[in-house]
């Protein structure tokens, strides 16, 4: 019969239209920004720098090794290495980034920097409401804007942060055992153990 297909299609549309009143699952949109959907843990937006302890400047994990700067596909990271060393969160003397800028107008949120970082120092944020009226300066984030605490990291990516913490604790314990053994041995002190260069395999 001519028109049968069209009637069938209209019945389908009517079913969907009425369905959203009956079943919550069929109602698929929310009214942003008043309503928000539950955050997805693995979401990634732009990178941030993790620091331990209460002081952001003292606790930065980054040692300015510049691997991420080199590996960044769109080259949006800019690092200046410090001339002097200062103790990091665990008290070891390390270089630190005198300047660490990320141009988020260039960044493409690929998280290659997170993957190549051997120090678990750079992670992906979930904050996406970053609009600003300054197109150039406002989107160039410096290290102060980028520094976020480990607690914040635990807050946004709990599973992954717990894994990272366990891994760091293990490495620290290993390094301490090694240092103890070196101190006990009669030989002159072995140079401090290099942090294990391990790729990050967490989800972010």
């Amino acid at each position: 019969m001519l028109g049968e297909g069209i009637l069938k299609g209209l019945a389908e549309t009517a079913k969907n239209f009425a369905g959203s009143f009956v079943s919550a699952e069929r109602l698929t949109t929310v009214e942003y920004p008043e309503q928000r959907i539950a955050p997805i843990e693995a979401t990634r937006v732009f990178p941030f720098l993790v620091y331990d302890g209460p002081e952001w400047e003292a606790g930065l994990r980054c040692v300015a090794c510049q691997i991420c700067e080199k590996e960044c596909p769109p080259k949006c990271i800019y690092i200046e290495k410090s001339k002097d060393k200062k103790p990091d969160a665990v008290g070891k003397q390390q270089f630190y980034p005198a300047k660490f800028d990320i141009d988020v107008s260039v960044c493409m949120s690929c998280q290659i920097c997170v993957e190549v970082c051997p120090f678990e120092a750079i992670k992906m944020d979930t904050e996406f409401e970053l609009s600003t009226d300054d197109r150039f300066g406002g989107l160039l984030h410096d290290r102060k804007q980028l520094a976020k605490s480990n607690e914040y990291y635990h807050h946004i990516h709990p599973t992954e942060a717990a894994e990272v913490d366990a891994r760091l604790a293990e490495e620290k314990a290993k390094a301490e055992a090694k240092a103890k053994a070196a101190a006990a041995a009669p030989k002159p002190a072995v140079p401090a153990a290099k942090p294990a260069a391990k790729p990050v395999e967490g989800e972010a």
């Binding site: 997805i40 843990e41 693995a42 979401t43 990634r44 493409m108 949120s109 690929c110 998280q111 290659i112 992906m124 989800e203 972010a204």
Partner: peptide
């Protein structure tokens, strides 16, 4: 895709 890879479209 987002809950596994972190991104909806640019999964990498």
């Amino acid at each position: 895709f987002e809950s596994l890879t972190g991104s909806r479209m640019m999964c990498n």
